[in-house]
Structure formats: structure tokens, C-alpha cells
Amino acid sequence: MRRLENGAAHEIPHHFATPRQAYESGKLGMWIFLATEVLLFGGLFAAYAVYRGNHPEIFIYAHRFLDSRLGALNTLILITSSLTMAWAVRSAQLGNRRLLTLLLALTLLGGCAFLGVKVVEYEHKWKHGLLWGKRYRPHPAETAQEHPSAAEVLREAPLGDRTNIPPAAIGPSGLAFSADETRAGHADAEEPRNVQLFFGVYFAMTGLHGLHVVAGLLVIGWVFVRLRGGAYGPSNFEAVDRAGLYWHLVDLIWIFLFPLLYLIH
């Protein structure tokens, strides 16, 4: 087994010729993996775009049930944890073990806080029946009380008119409702149809993101545990670096999710 030029006790796998080759291979591999993660979420972003494009009324109406203050808080938490993570990588490079320990701990704390806030939000949705597809069972009166702004949306603009889906063609009887029928069924509805779609998208996106936060925490936790063995130093900070890259990606995805779901006009 070869050793690093500077003599540090870090061994590189036998199939690499130089430590540099090993390091760069690892880095490239990680970036490619991150690209696959982006595409995994890409599918959900595409679904979001399609449904929001076709049914803006649903999104405008339903996003009021999300608490944008909690969302903003979570954004702040994640950005801060990204900062501590980046700083942790730097202190690993500089060989500052004490600082590294502290910063990793702070990052872990940030991730947990994020999940905590998310639990509060989910619980609220659960209580009000504001769930996905089949599970969508809102309690209108109660919810309207708590979310006057949603009721306002309805009062201000008749949402039915904002859908981008043209009315179904009127076929021979039995194929589709005539225009009048749909409208009649709609006029006295309290909310746009298919609000559950928004919550389906919301839970799919934040749920998958939440799973990624958990995965990120596990990875950083693993890096943290290995700290004790004195695993990292100026010539061996790859694991910290890679965990950091992953964490930044998780953060970045949330930065897109927050405005798309919470801040709709």
C-alpha cells in the first residue's frame, strides 16, 4: 500500500497510483451522485410544474394552509447549518480538531431542528385533514377560522375562472358534462376542485426531502463518530468534504422548495 507523500498515516486503495488520483476520483464520483439526486427530485419538480401550470387556482388557494413563518424559520436553520458544515470542512483541512467537533455538532443540531419544525407542520396538517389524495378530509369551518387568508382568496377572486384547463368538449350525452352543468356544480363550492393535488405534491416533495435530511444526518453522524478515532486531518478530510457536499445539496433543494410551496402569488 502506498502512503501520502507527506508521510501521513493514511493509506490509499491499492488500485490507485497516487493519492491525488484517489482524491479526485472520489470527488468526481460524489458530484455525479449529486447529479442523480437532482434528477430524482427533477421528476417531482416536473410534476409540480405541470399541475401548477394547469391548475394555478389550486395552488393559490391551498398554499395558504402552509405556515410561511415556519417555512422561513426552517430555511434559516438549514442555511446556517450549511455554513457550519462548510466551516467544518475548512477546519478539517486546517487540522483544527476541536473546532471541527463543535461545527459538526452544530450542523447535526441544525438538521434535527429542521426535522422538529417539519414534524410540527405535518402534525398540523394531519389534525386538519389537509392530506394527500385519498386522505384529504378537510374540516372547512375549523380550518377557515384558523386560516382566514384562505377564505379571503375565495372571496376576492372566483378561482374557478383561473384554471387553465379548457372546459371539456361536449360530446354525445353521457360522455362529458355540458359547460353549464360543471359551472353549476362549481358555483357554490367553497374551494376549488382537487385541492388534494396540492397536498399530494407538497407531501411528496417535502417527504422525500425530509428523507434526504435524515440520510444527511446519518452520514454526518457517522463522520462525527469517527472523529474520536482521530480519523481526519489536513491530508485526510475527504469524508468530511463529501458529507458536506451532500448536505449542501439537501440544503439547496429546500431553498427551491420553500418559495415554490410556501410563497405563491
Binding site: 410534476a47 405541470v50 399541475y51 394527500w132 389524495g133 385519498k134 386522505r135 384529504y136 376542485r193 382537487n194 388534494q196 393535488l197 399530494g200 405534491v201 407531501f203 411528496a204
Partner: peptide
């Protein structure tokens, strides 16, 4: 769970 994204009965789109 019946999330409804592809289910027309729940407003979803099977062509998606």
C-alpha cells in the same frame, strides 16, 4: 397511500 398524483379520480393525471 393513495397520493393521487397519477390517479384521475383524485385529480391526478395518468398521462403524466
Amino acid at each position: 397511500l393513495g397520493i393521487g398524483i397519477f390517479d384521475p379520480a383524485l385529480g391526478g393525471d395518468p398521462v403524466l
